[in-house]
Amino acid sequence: MRQTEKESFEDFIKSFFYGSRSDLSFKFISDFSEDQASDFLVGLFKTLVDAVDDDDLAQVKQRIMEGQALSYGGGHLKGFTYEDGPFTPMEKPLAEARLSLLTSSGHFVDGDDPEPLGAKNMTQAQAESRIMEFIKEAPKLSVIPVDTPADRLRVRHGGYDTRGALKDPNAAFPLKRLKEIQAKGGFKALTPNAYSFVGACAQTRLLKETLPEWTADMKAAAPDAVVLVPV
């Protein structure tokens, strides 16, 4: 399209959301008005030069965080707003506690692909292009034995920028860090398995079809507490 007709600024902004410039770290730009997007990009360019001058990347990170917060700050919850919620106190001190880990980062073990949407060997790019199908499906939970070597962990998730998790699973699925904390006595043990799924899924189906089983399975694993990580 860029070859044959002039692209509008609005088209440019929208292209970051699963379009020709799809970038899941910057997809929030598509939520902006043209003025907001212009201000954000001009501000980001200035910040980049300041960051080089000051040898300090924190200001770049701060600007990106502010943009990302704007896109998740609105009322996207579609009825899933609650006045109050349950609370279960810890019954044991951490030194005696067995913990479990569950993330929505889309990790799984090599050779145990959950094959979402019935597809074998789906790539990250294919997951991104099929995101609208993912959000109509019930999620599948991948069981990840806690002794899985890091080089056998795979990640695929069409809803977020997985580059950080590809470089180092611990950026989103901190199994190795948990084991280190356990080894120095921060808590007693991990359950035999950790768990992960793709958080971009049908919320009502998650609630009605999937969660009762996951909850029963977790009760059977009998952790004293679970570390949960939305990604």
Partner: peptide, 20 residues
């Protein structure tokens, strides 16, 4: 949001959680 549902379900069934 998905993990929020998981946290509420686990807590309702007596499993303490912390969300990061």
């Amino acid at each position: 949001m998905s993990v929020g549902h998981v946290a509420r379900s686990f807590e309702q069934e007596g499993i303490p959680t912390v969300v990061i």
